[in-house]
Design a binder for these strands. Structure first.
Lengths: 144, 144
DNA sequence: AATAGTAATGATAATAAATATCATGGAAAG
DNA sequence: CTTTCCATGATATTTATTATCATTACTATT
């Protein structure tokens, strides 16, 4: 999979730099829905000189080509998802962790809506409390 | 409806200032999902002295009491919704407009998922092209 | 292998949204 | 009316993201 992306990178005329490889390797199969800063901090361990500009640059290059998704599920920051297949998300209101739901749901939108809006896709966010947070107790459920 | 909110405002110990009334009136029945800046610009017409701090202040007070929802559907800014009943959204990829879908969908989440995550609610985002944008043509569909 | 062409890097500055601070003003209650 | 205490507005700060640009370095070609 990651080989494919690297090949596609080159085929499109994008240069495959060590920094980009590191970012791609971090993203490959990653289901933690990292933010730009998460990625920056991780890659920095191997490339202490890496700049935020490179991270944003690479993410934008990937996004423009549809190789990653930019998620708008965290009110504070963008998150990125290398899983580009249609799927949904469970979002923990306490710890903000995001878990994939790899299911196809049939969401029957009425004709009168379809007539007024060309629907190209959908994304379901499930809000709740993750297993980990439930174990730890507490009663702040955050807010929807 | 707006009377109710104003009453509740006072009952909770919040002060009902002219600025807040203006914000409440603008939000009441508003289905445009305005950003803080949208609200600021509108209220500024009547209260040229109003500050952004007051807008954010009021929105936070309303949100904390569950009187409005903070929407995380626009990658660039938070949007606010006075409709606190469960509903979903159509988001135009071209003009970023947001339209309500006041329907209840039954989204059957499998038991193994429910066992690992207490689901408290869900929100469906439909992506597509609105009627207005389709009329105007163009072929930039934005990206999911 | 040397080189030329071009895109990527990283340092830095610039935007922009949202939050924090705080002296002053004003709503609410008695 | 007066007192209390929260809200306001001016401003500063924080944080995320985008923009700029000289330098670097990958890639293809020779």
């Amino acid at each position: 999979m990651i080989i494919n992306i690297m090949e596609r990178f080159k085929n499109i005329g994008l240069k495959l730099t060590p920094q980009r490889v590191a970012i791609l390797e971090y993203l490959d199969g990653n289901t933690s829905h990292p933010s730009a800063e998460d990625i920056y901090r991780h890659v920095k361990e191997r490339f202490p000189m890496i700049s935020f500009a490179t991270v944003y640059n690479t993410l934008e290059a990937l996004r423009k080509r549809g190789l990653i998704l930019e998620l708008t599920i965290d009110p504070d920051r963008k998150r990125y998802d290398p899983n580009i297949h249609p799927h949904h998300h469970l979002i923990c209101l306490r710890c903000k962790s995001v878990v994939d739901v790899n299911l196809e749901f049939d969401v029957p939108v009425p004709d009168d809506v379809r007539g007024r809006f060309e629907i190209l896709g959908n994304h379901i966010e499930f809000y709740g409390i993750c297993e980990q947070c439930k174990k730890e107790g507490g009663d702040d459920n955050g807010s929807l």
